[in-house]
């Protein structure tokens, strides 16, 4: 379970949110510029909140009052970024292995093969990210985040950089990943149709505040 209760001032914009995410997929849903990506960055440990608390499975990741701020590499939270952010100097296979190298775990060919098959990226393993299409790149990014065995998976608009056809092509993989991996996920998006297919809970954000929390029926309510 993830509990987030943070304040952050970003220039003129002030973010002030609190929500809880349990098992399954929680969507952070709202128009662009409502601070969704900033929240993800704070949970990942890449952006420091001004104050508040972030707690994951009873481990305090951030506590402004107590001065706790666990470094991102110690959080074991997988992140898929909008632009994939694959390492250009490493092959797809080495990108997928990167998280395992950094945690010093032994190779696990069974899990590796399973994830590769799940995302259908076996034919890409020897290529470099520069030679992949946008959709292929995001599938590798999913695999890379999954293979680090995260406690929580953060997906920051993973389909936003793709056109409609590519999105339709990737969504089934995302659903398979959700049903297969059983890792709790936070899914950031401003696309209601996409969220409806992936998420089971919705946190609706508006201008840096939580406007509503509930099931996917929230997606149909108009913004004020």
């Amino acid at each position: 379970m993830l509990t987030v209760e943070v304040d952050k001032k970003l220039g003129e914009f002030s973010l002030n949110v609190s929500f809880v995410s349990e098992s399954g997929v929680t969507a952070l849903f709202g128009p662009s510029g409502t601070g969704k990506t900033s929240i993800i960055s704070m949970v990942a440990g890449l952006l420091k909140p001004d104050r508040g608390q972030i707690v994951l499975d009873e481990e305090v990741l951030f506590d402004g009052a107590k001065g706790i701020d666990v470094r991102p590499w110690k959080r074991h939270i997988g992140t898929v970024f909008q632009e994939g952010r694959l390492f250009p100097h490493l092959s797809v296979k080495h990108n997928l292995d990167y998280g395992r190298w950094m945690s010093g775990c032994a190779a696990d060919p069974k899990t590796f093969a399973h994830v590769v098959e799940l995302l259908d990226i076996g034919h890409l393993l020897d290529r470099r990210p520069g030679k992949l299409s946008g959709g292929e790149r995001q599938r590798v990014a999913f695999g890379r985040a999954l293979l680090m065995r995260p406690r929580l998976l953060l997906l920051d608009e993973p389909l936003a950089s793709l056109d409609a056809a590519r999105k339709a092509e990737i969504l089934p993989y995302l659903e398979r990943l959700r049903d297969d991996a059983r890792v709790p996920m936070i899914y950031v998006s401003h696309d209601a149709a996409e969220v409806k297919r992936i998420a089971n809970r919705v946190v609706r954000l508006d201008a840096g505040r939580v406007a509503a929390t509930g099931g996917v029926e929230l997606l149909d309510a108009p913004f004020q």
Binding site: A44, G45, L46, R71, P72, W73, R75, H76, I77, G78, T79, F81, E83, R85, F87, P88, Y98, G99, M102, S103, R144, A145, M148
Partner: peptide, 12 residues
């Protein structure tokens, strides 16, 4: 951002 991505993957 690539260094941020590496940090989330466990790279100190």
């Amino acid at each position: 951002k690539l260094e941020d991505a590496a940090a989330t993957l466990g790279a100190n």
